[in-house]
Simulated assay, not measured.
Amino acid sequence: MMPSNSRYRERLLGLVTLALMLFCPPLLLVIDRLPSVSMGWLPLYLFCSWAFIIGLTAWLMEPTKRR
C-alpha cells in the first residue's frame, strides 16, 4: 500500500530529479572525457549511478513501520 502524504511525493520527485541530473548528457560527456588507464570511467559511472538510483528507489518504496 502506497502512502499518499506529501512527504512521500516530495521524496519521489527528489529521486526523479536526482536521476535526471546523474544521467544528463553534459555530465556524461565530462565523465567520458576523464583520463583513464584502461577502459574509461563512463561504464563504471553508469553502473554505479544506476545501482544507486535502484537502491534509493527500493529504500523509498519500502513500507514504513508505524509505532
Rank of each mutant, 00 (worst) to 15 (best):
M1T: 06
M2C: 13
M2D: 11
P3C: 08
S4L: 14
S4Q: 13
N5K: 10
N5M: 12
S6H: 14
S6P: 11
R7E: 13
R7H: 10
Y8H: 13
R9M: 12
E10V: 05
E10P: 10
E10Y: 08
R11Y: 05
R11K: 15
R11E: 04
L12S: 10
L12F: 14
L13D: 06
G14C: 06
G14W: 12
G14M: 14
V16W: 09
V16L: 11
T17D: 08
A19L: 07
A19K: 00
A19T: 04
L20V: 08
L20A: 11
L20K: 06
L20M: 05
M21G: 03
L22D: 01
F23V: 02
C24K: 00
C24I: 07
P25Y: 08
P25D: 02
P25S: 04
P26R: 03
L27G: 06
L27P: 04
L28C: 03
L29A: 14
L29V: 10
D32T: 10
R33M: 02
R33P: 03
L34F: 06
L34S: 01
P35A: 11
P35K: 09
S38H: 12
M39N: 11
W41G: 03
W41M: 03
W41N: 00
L42Y: 09
L44M: 12
L44T: 08
Y45T: 05
L46S: 04
C48F: 10
C48E: 08
C48I: 03
S49T: 09
W50L: 08
A51V: 00
F52D: 02
I54W: 10
G55E: 05
L56Y: 00
L56G: 00
T57E: 10
T57V: 15
T57H: 09
A58Y: 15
W59E: 00
L60Q: 10
M61P: 05
E62L: 11
T64F: 01
T64N: 10
T64P: 04
K65E: 12
R66S: 15
R67H: 02
R67S: 07
